[in-house]
Simulated assay, not measured.
Amino acid sequence: MRVSLKDVAQLAGVSIKTVSNVVNHYEHVTPAMRERVQRAIDELGYRPNLTARNLRKGRTGIIALAVPELGNPYFAELAGEVIDAAAEHELTVLLDHTRGEREREVLVSQGFRARVIDGLILSPLELEPEDLSARTDDVPLVLLGEREYALPYPHIAIDNVAAARSAVRHLIRLGRTRIAFLGARTDSPNRPAQLRLQGWREELKAAGLEGGERLAAPTGGWDRGDGAEGMARLLDSGVRPDAVFAYNDLVAVGAMRVLHERGLRVPWDVAVVGFDDVPESRYGAVTLTTISPDKKAIARLAVSSLVSSLERAAAQRVNGNGDAPPEQQPSVFAPFRLLERESTLGRR
């Protein structure tokens, strides 16, 4: 038999309203009363009816997270962090896989799940500013990633230029002078790739080193096979770098495989730095030096921004100004750090 608020109130010797205040974390409850009610909750094993609570608030208690690639370890880890952060707000997360396709990202952003979800966290790759300008859905939206839309939606990112410069600076300090960037795609709207390429160029220029196009090696995509093919093409072109800064860890792993096959030792002949700090970077035969974005911070910032947007929208409805135009939201940057491992330092 399901335990009710009334059962808890009778055991604690308080009113149902007092139990409700404790369950809903209202501030104006004395510590002694809160402890008394909590003992009764624990003894009876009471669990709040979240469905009923959300219905009273006009919500579903569900938010969506839409990412380009669930198979990519970075996005898989990020999704786990978002789920954990959402659970702290008693929210359930619905996952969407856009495959980085503009049509799919537009569909998600325009609210095709509007009746199911309270809010959306979207990490777009191909979405254009005009796609969001035309958005008519009023479901709160938080954007992840490095594309800047200058629109009134919270935007969580990391400073990709600064992160790339940190990676290249590390290689320069180790005495590397012919540093390639693997994953250059000027034909793609992928903003992180463009920003990391920019950071690579800026740091080489600051050090007075070459950063020309022959060292900017394109790849067909950003997976292991793409990194292997790109590394092979670079070596076959006659270019012999003494270091590689890869767009991400998966590209770096593919590149290291080709370097091994060609008889080049990592890091002695060619040092390698990746980006994302996925689990594979920590457990390979040669552990990978990488830029590690703070995924937990990104997730928490995204969820807290979405919750704030939900609360703001609810307040506007109560106050009768639900049609008030939203204000421009500044970008929020999560921290990152460079993790130095064997692919640049060798085994100690």
Rank of each mutant, 00 (worst) to 15 (best):
N190A: 07
L50R: 15
I83A: 14
W200I: 02
E213Y: 05
G58S: 11
P152E: 04
E130D: 12
T51C: 06
L122F: 00
V8P: 09
P241Q: 10
E130G: 05
V307Y: 15
S343V: 02
A232Q: 15
M1V: 06
N54R: 07
F275V: 02
L5G: 03
V23F: 14
V332Q: 14
G320T: 06
V14R: 07
N319S: 08
V286A: 06
Q110E: 12
D323M: 13
V307N: 13
E342H: 03
G320V: 05
N24K: 07
I63K: 13
L5P: 02
F336N: 08
Q316F: 13
E103H: 10
S292L: 00
L339V: 15
V253H: 10
G175Y: 05
A114R: 14
M33G: 08
R178W: 01
P325E: 01
G230R: 13
A299Y: 04
R53A: 12
R347P: 05
D249V: 11
R115T: 06
I158F: 00
P189G: 11
A157H: 14
N190P: 03
L5T: 09
K57D: 05
G320D: 06
G175T: 04
V272R: 13
S109Q: 10
P335L: 04
V139W: 01
D276V: 03
R257V: 03
A40W: 03
R99S: 12
N319A: 11
P31I: 06
P293R: 00
A255M: 04
L174C: 00
R39V: 01
Q10M: 08
G13D: 10
R173K: 13
A228P: 04
P48D: 05
S237H: 02
D294Y: 01
G111K: 09
L235F: 05
A255D: 06
G71A: 12
D84S: 09
T344L: 02
D323P: 03
V142L: 09
T18D: 00
V8C: 10
G80L: 08
A217I: 00
I172D: 07
F75P: 02
E103Q: 15
R262V: 00
Y26I: 07
S15R: 11
G208E: 11
R214T: 09
I291W: 04
R176T: 02
Y247C: 01
S166A: 14
P152G: 07
D269C: 08
V251S: 12
E81R: 12
T18C: 00
L50K: 04
N24W: 07
D118T: 05
R176A: 01
E213D: 15
T98C: 09
A313W: 14
G100H: 11
L338C: 08
P129G: 00
D242E: 08
D84C: 02
L195M: 05
R224Q: 10
G61F: 01
G225Y: 06
Y26D: 05
G13C: 12
E126W: 10
V22L: 12
R201S: 13
D137T: 14
D269H: 13
D137C: 15
T344S: 06
D96W: 04
S4N: 11
I298F: 05
A246W: 12
N72L: 00
L182C: 03
A334E: 09
A76F: 12
S15G: 10
V3Y: 15
A228N: 12
K296S: 13
L50P: 09
G145H: 07
